[in-house]
């Protein structure tokens, strides 16, 4: 039997959060963490968590799995169970709504701040804005982000200043538009990022890189933004 400790908190009935221990029979299979959560839910319907696609595409089931943020649906037990024990907590740093469900408003507010949409004032061509294959290639490693928040909620700078530091997820997307040859709002975008918090709170610890379930590298993107800021300032 696998021991599973789960963070429980129902603000309507619990004064404080607590850890509840369950036992699950995995029949020796290397299940995904989400499968275990579903088994727990069948036993105890009061347990709350988010999930949708169950294949690492939607980004809704980011949780803290035995101390490391990740997507429950694509994290096999073999990679996270130690001494026959699995510990599940909500993503750290954001307010808990209930059990493993967190309030992501702060995360989305930062995403909104970087204006994650293509901006171009020149007259639109008849069919479409073309881009060379080389320019298109610059967006690889950026556009794949599914906004699961695993990175931003593993970043100490985001924990301390979620209202001022854009965080790795938002900055990766900021660079995705800065790097896009079809976008012409670079100057405005950079102006909005030059304060001491938005970008410069990143200290390059790379927690974000180590947890991203899509294998993306926000730290590198942040470095590119910083270089662009330095160039535009000199």
């Amino acid at each position: 039997m696998l021991k599973v400790e789960v963070y429980r908190y129902n603000p309507e009935t619990d004064k404080t959060p607590y850890m509840k221990t369950y036992e699950v029979d995995t029949e020796g299979k290397d299940l995904m963490v989400l499968d275990v959560l579903e088994m727990l839910k069948a036993k105890d319907a009061s347990l709350s968590f988010r999930r949708s696609c169950r294949e690492g595409v939607c980004g809704s089931d980011g949780v803290n799995i035995s101390g490391k943020n990740g997507l429950a649906c694509i994290t096999p037990l073999s990679s996270c169970v130690k001494n026959n024990k699995l510990v599940l907590r909500p993503l750290p740093g954001l307010p808990v709504i209930r059990d493993l469900v967190i309030d992501m408003s702060q995360f989305y507010a930062q995403y909104r701040k970087i204006e994650p949409f293509l901006q171009n004032d020149t007259p639109a061509p008849a069919i479409e804005r073309l881009q060379s294959p080389e320019d298109r290639a610059k967006l690889d490693g950026l556009y794949e982000c599914i906004l699961c928040a695993c990175c931003s909620t593993s970043c100490p700078s985001f924990w301390w200043n979620p209202d001022k530091f854009v965080g790795p997820a938002g900055l990766l997307q900021a660079y995705r538009f800065l790097a896009d040859s079809r976008d012409s709002a670079n100057e405005k975008r950079l102006n909005g990022l030059s304060d001491p918090f938005s970008v410069f709170r990143c200290h390059g610890i790379q927690n974000c890189v180590s947890v991203c379930p899509k294998g993306l590298n926000p730290t590198r993107a942040i470095g590119h933004i910083r270089n662009m800021l330095l160039h535009s300032a000199t």
Binding site: K164, L193, S194, D195, P196, F197, S198, V199, F200, R226, L229, L230, A233
Partner: peptide, 18 residues
């Protein structure tokens, strides 16, 4: 922003360079 007012160069780029 109160906190920004006390930053040395009042701008992240300047602070970073300094």
């Amino acid at each position: 922003m109160v906190t920004t007012a006390t930053s040395f160069g009042r701008n992240g780029v300047a602070d970073w360079i300094i």
